[in-house]
Design a protein around this nucleic acid. Sequence first.
DNA 1: GCCGTCTGCTTAACCGGTTCAGTTTCTGTG
DNA 2: CACAGAAACTGAACCGGTTAAGCAGACGGC
Lengths: 343, 343
Amino acid sequence: MGGLMRRPTIVDIAKAAGVSKGAVSYALNGRPGVSEETRRRILAIASDMGWAPSSPARALSPGGRIGAIGLVVDRPAHSLGLEPFFMQLVSGIETELASSNNDLLLQVTEDMGAETAAYRRWSAERRVDGVIMVDLRVDDPRIGLVEGLPLPAVVLGGPEGAGSLPCLYTDDSVAMREVVHYLAALGHRRIVRVAGPEEFVHTRARTAAFLDAAEQAGLAEAYSVHADYTGEAGTRTTRRLLARTDRPTALVYDNDLMAVAGLGVAREMGVGVPSQLSIVAWDDSVLCRLVRPSLTAIARDIVSYGRLAAAMLGDAIEGRPVRNQETSRGELYPRASTGPMGA
Amino acid sequence: MGGLMRRPTIVDIAKAAGVSKGAVSYALNGRPGVSEETRRRILAIASDMGWAPSSPARALSPGGRIGAIGLVVDRPAHSLGLEPFFMQLVSGIETELASSNNDLLLQVTEDMGAETAAYRRWSAERRVDGVIMVDLRVDDPRIGLVEGLPLPAVVLGGPEGAGSLPCLYTDDSVAMREVVHYLAALGHRRIVRVAGPEEFVHTRARTAAFLDAAEQAGLAEAYSVHADYTGEAGTRTTRRLLARTDRPTALVYDNDLMAVAGLGVAREMGVGVPSQLSIVAWDDSVLCRLVRPSLTAIARDIVSYGRLAAAMLGDAIEGRPVRNQETSRGELYPRASTGPMGA
DNA sequence: GCCGTCTGCTTAACCGGTTCAGTTTCTGTG
DNA sequence: CACAGAAACTGAACCGGTTAAGCAGACGGC
């Protein structure tokens, strides 16, 4: 068991190299103050010993960074597993972090109180250098809190409502227009959107874009109903909508999970897809391609989204200026779940 | 912006209370050495100032803990989002960690090399106090590595192959027997299992249990084929199986994602479920309940699994003895995807 | 009245890095 | 040859905690 061996420190390296620990620090950090020859010798010894800097020790120095960022995901755990969005986001974030040996702290909470508590604690205990916040809400309590904390942050969403914090957002209006016009071109007149929670800023933006596009396309009967992203809500909402006498002929869901739930309800109620009902999912995923009929979906590059967010946060942590950014827009991928009525 | 305010330290508290910082430390940690009255005064001041211990500083002291554990998930990111297993596991782990103000570092990697590198780095840089390892493999290189590192660990899987590391495992044989006998009772004779990767220990254990149960039930034709948990593999494998002349009448999938993929293929090929083919998924999820027909599944309490794993790791970190444990077994939840042939 | 012990606290070292202020040595210049 | 200036390195302070050792004063016992 090598398990008991003491981890080497820069003092060990200093002894081995016959120099002071200050010199070792300069050498290892590529700063001036040591000759090239000494630097090489020190680096060789460090590598020999398998030395790596203690992150707590580094963090303790004035101006030191712990080398970790935090992400809180505030959604019910049982629905979360199904949303590829988060895992892809995490994957993108880590791609960026990996290049600088940074780590990700993940917390899954069930309410906003626990989320704000997490930011407070992380900041006070110096566990992270910064945080990425998702699911921006209208009058989001997190914004004021984090603005008042010594905690760099990047907001996914906005730019309205992000306060003074840098943010990264998608303009969904173009994709929304594409979807609505596509459905209108297929002959649909009664298009209903099963949206995410109303308190999310991006839900509102999409709602406005949806109404806008519908008006443009001359659809007076388009409207949105709100659900909470869970499969259960998707099931309930769809059942209610399909039971109406003026049943919609096309449904646009704000996430893939609700769309799949909607597909199940349609089958249950004997409503043919796409012959009697067209279905579109926002945010594509393996899931959309696996179910039958496969779901027409709007895909975004979420991995890049995460990578960019992490890069922005890195800049903010280093004290570099950070500008709000817009990411690539979603694109429509028509599949088997959409078509003209009766086809 | 209070953002610029210096975070209070124990020295600030000591000054305010008119005592030494040592006394403050004793008071805050509930150790003897200060009078009850002084302790109360110090606690009040600390709470007033909004003080919280700097985790890097704590970690730096001899024997200090950083208060974080690590989890590496080594699966392709795009399939991962769909597996409720991991999010539920994370959720369970965090439930346990929350009680002691500990955090979770999550890393999503695409290969074993990156995973072992993560353990090395985390240990060398003292970023975590311990790790939880999932998806134990046959001759797993992680075991030897971690055994040789000063890094407490708990293995999910085993107990064979976990080396000297404490492990937490499920005995799937009971549930497997239940599934096979249930299908046999429905009249199925050609049952095929679409298994996870062969190199996973738990896959092998299930394979053995499956063969055992099939023999018991007098099914000579039962066998397993291996896939990699992705929807694509599920699709491909199922297509191949359903194209055979001696087509199986029941399929048992090792995860929900492949089962859903299989259902899609059956529809595509005009094979009725459950009239011509029964489908069972291992590990239940929202997904199984959302698709039509809903999938018969084996459910385990994964949240508890995670919680227990975190508790075991906590013991290991504190140096308390840790015994291998078996968790609750899975249970079969029959739904619409299974039935007698031709029904 | 002296000693031993306990309580309640202080002092100082330590963890493993970073960094600033010096000190020594080397080099080039007038 | 004296001297400036840079290069290479040392020593020590510092970050924010924990903890061992030391010490003053109170108290009790004989």
